Structures are given as C-alpha cells and as structure tokens.
Computed example of a mutant assay.
Amino acid sequence: MQQVRRGTVRKRGSQQALLARGIAAPRKTSTGLPVLAQARRLITRTPRTIRLGRIGSHARSKWLVLCALVFGSAVVYGAVIGGQTTRAYDALASALERSAIAAGFGVKKIAVTGQLHATDAAITAALGAGPDTMMLGFDTDAAKTRLETVPWIRHAQVMRLLPSTLQVMVEERSPFAVWQSKGQTYVVDAEGVVLAPALRDAYTDLPLVVGEGAAKNAAALVAQLAAHDDLNKQILAAIRVGDRRWTLKLLSGAEVMLPDDNVPEALASLVKLDGERRVLERDIATVDLRLLDRITVRLRAAEATRLQDATQDDIPTASTKSTPAKGKT
C-alpha cells in the first residue's frame, strides 16, 4: 500500500469504483480557488407565523356582553353625575311624540257635548290639548280635573277616540240668582258658586240678592218665598243684613225686615195682613217682622203711625204661631 501524506487522498481506482464500494468521492473543486476545510453552509429561514387559537363562540359572547355592560354602566354613571338623565329622557320622549303625531295620532278634533254657557276658549284652555298633543300620551284624568275648575262646569268626562279625536262631556251649573257685592254683579248657582260676572239686565228672570253671604243663603230664601207667589212677584231684591237675616226690597220701595229665624211664620203673617188690610198697597216705608209677637208698619208720611197687627185675634205671630191677647197694642 502506497503511503500518502496527510491531507492527500490515496488513489486506488477511479471515482466510479469508489462510489461502487460505498465510499464518498470528494467533490471536484476549482483549481483556481482555495477550498476551506470543513466549511459549513449558512442556513437562512423565513420568520414563522404563530397563530393563536380562536376563542369559542360561547366565551366570545360572554366577553362581548361583559364589555357592553361595562360600557353602558359607564355611560349611565356619567349621565347621572353630569345631570343629563332628565334631558336625555325628555329628548327621547319628544322624539317619540313627534313620530306619533306625524303618524296621525295627534289631536285634530275636540267634540264637546253639554256646553251651554262655558266658552270654547275656557274649555280649550282647561283641556290643554292641541295639534301638537299626542293622543296616546294624553292624561284624561288630569284634563277632567282641570275642566271641573271652570266655574260653569260641575262635572266633566274626557275620552280618547283614536286616532285623533277627544270626546268631552260636561255638566254645567245652572244660573240661580244674581249676586251684587261691592258694586259688582255676578251670576251664581244654587250653592252660591260664582259662575261669571253678569249684568242684571241679562238675567231679569233671576232673583237679585245683595250683600255678604247673600249668594250662599239665596237658595233657602227662595224656597221659603215659593209658597207666596203674590208676595214673590213684588220683590225687587233681597238684602242680606250682617249675614244673619234678610230685608226684602219691594218694587214699591217698601222694605220688609225678616227675623233671624222663623222666616216662614213671619212671611205667613205678612201675607195674611196684606190680604185683609192691603198693607203692601199703601204708601209705607217699612214692615218690621223682627219681633216675635208683633208686626210694625211705618208709613212714609210725616204723621206716620204705628200699626200693630197684634190687635187681630186671627193673625199668628212670627215665632209662636199663636194669636195675641185681645186688646194688646
């Protein structure tokens, strides 16, 4: 075997023979360039993309809900702290109301039944409804309460007739008397409720009552006078004195002073006296019925004398309904 130096390859055959024997043949190198022993090849690799595993749909839904709750809570908290909740609510309500009105649910017609004296303006103002009012949000109970504050209206009822009609039914108070107080005249009902300022000439068929407390007590007096139609026709006005009793002013100018109580008996005595002596047809100034056991008539003339009806056995007194003793003056 031929000895070779280190770094040289022993030649024992051709390259093909070496390959056949399983021995790797050295690569041919260029004779013009030096070859580095045991040279290593540099390997460059492209960056790897790392993909994270996807979150499951159920977990993702919970996460989104949690985020929405946190965000919503923050918005609400900020609105409360900033005092914007009322403004936001009003804006939303206003938008909904405008949408409903645009869709045909606004008040377009008001139908009123039972109206006689109350004005259209008073009813409309108390109702508080107009073209910009949404039917669905209209408070009929509150409207009923407001309508019943109108003096002429005793009771009211309000109904919504969709899409755009309000049905209003009212029961009005009835004029009962004309009340004069402090130089002003008003029409009142039987309970003394002032209905409206009024001229006497506009209600000539109603009794005229004057003075403090006259409006509230007029119904009782009118009921007592109803039994004496002839006397009632002669009355010009009833004057309330000290809010205790009445003085009747007659068309002739005479005055009939009634007592504090026992008024029916006093009226019966006057009617009986007038039937027998025609007292009310004379030129008299006053007829005083205030005393319990006598009637005093004062004439207008200077020589006025007092006439006492108590001399008649068949004339009852104002309070006792009994006849006085014969010859009493």
Results as ranks from 00 to 15, higher is better:
Lys233Leu: 08
Ala39Gln: 07
Val287Gln: 03
Trp179Ile: 03
Ile123Cys: 04
Thr44Ile: 00
Gly192Cys: 11
Tyr77Cys: 12
Gly82Asn: 15
Thr204Leu: 12
Ser14His: 11
Val279Phe: 05
Ala254Gly: 12
Ile81Met: 14
Arg6Cys: 00
Trp179Leu: 03
Leu251Asp: 15
Met169Thr: 07
Asp90Met: 09
Lys272Met: 11
Gly327Gln: 14
Leu289His: 10
Val187Pro: 02
Thr329Ile: 09
Gly242Thr: 01
Pro324Ala: 15
Ala318Tyr: 04
Thr8Val: 08
Ser57Tyr: 04
Pro175Gln: 08
Thr31Trp: 06
Leu195Ser: 12
Gln308Val: 07
Ile295Cys: 06
Arg282Met: 11
Ala126Lys: 01
Val263Phe: 09
Val263Trp: 07
Arg200Met: 11
Trp246Ala: 08
Ala237Asp: 05
Met134Leu: 06
His117Asp: 08
Ile110Ala: 00
Ala17Glu: 15
Arg45Trp: 01
Ile239Asn: 15
Tyr77His: 11
Leu251Arg: 12
Val222Asn: 02
Pro131Gly: 07
Leu166Pro: 02
Leu206Met: 14
Asp229Asn: 14
Trp246Asn: 06
Arg98Thr: 14
Gly83Phe: 01
Gly114Ala: 10
Ala103Thr: 04
Gln157Met: 07
Val178Asn: 00
Glu303Gly: 15
Pro175Gly: 11
Arg41Gly: 05
Trp246Lys: 06
Thr165Leu: 04
Arg278Met: 07
Ala301Trp: 00
Thr145Phe: 01
Leu42Lys: 02
Asp274Gln: 10
Lys144Cys: 09
Gln2Gly: 13
Gln224Glu: 15
Gly7Tyr: 07
Pro163Tyr: 13
Ala125Pro: 02
Val209Lys: 09
Arg27Cys: 06
Gln84Cys: 05
Ala302Asp: 14
Trp63Ser: 03
Leu267Ile: 13
Ala88Arg: 00
Gln167Asp: 13
Gly82Val: 07
Lys249Thr: 08
Asp243Ser: 11
Gly106Pro: 01
Val150Trp: 03
Ile123Tyr: 06
Asp313Tyr: 06
Gly7Asn: 06
Thr113Phe: 05
Met257His: 04
Arg6Glu: 15
Leu299Ser: 01
Pro34Leu: 13
Gly213Asp: 06
Gln15Tyr: 03
Gln3Trp: 04
Arg300Asp: 08
Leu280Gly: 02
Ala238Met: 00
Ser99Tyr: 07
Leu66Ile: 12
Ala59Glu: 14
Asp260Cys: 10
Asp243Lys: 00
Ala214Val: 05
Val75Arg: 10
Ala304Lys: 00
Val9Ile: 14
Leu36Pro: 06
Ser319Met: 05
Gly82Leu: 06
Arg290Met: 13
Ile81Val: 15
Thr133Tyr: 02
Gly137Phe: 02
Gln180Val: 14
Thr119Tyr: 03
Thr49Ala: 12
Ala126Gln: 05
Thr323Pro: 09
Phe176Ser: 09
Ala318Lys: 03
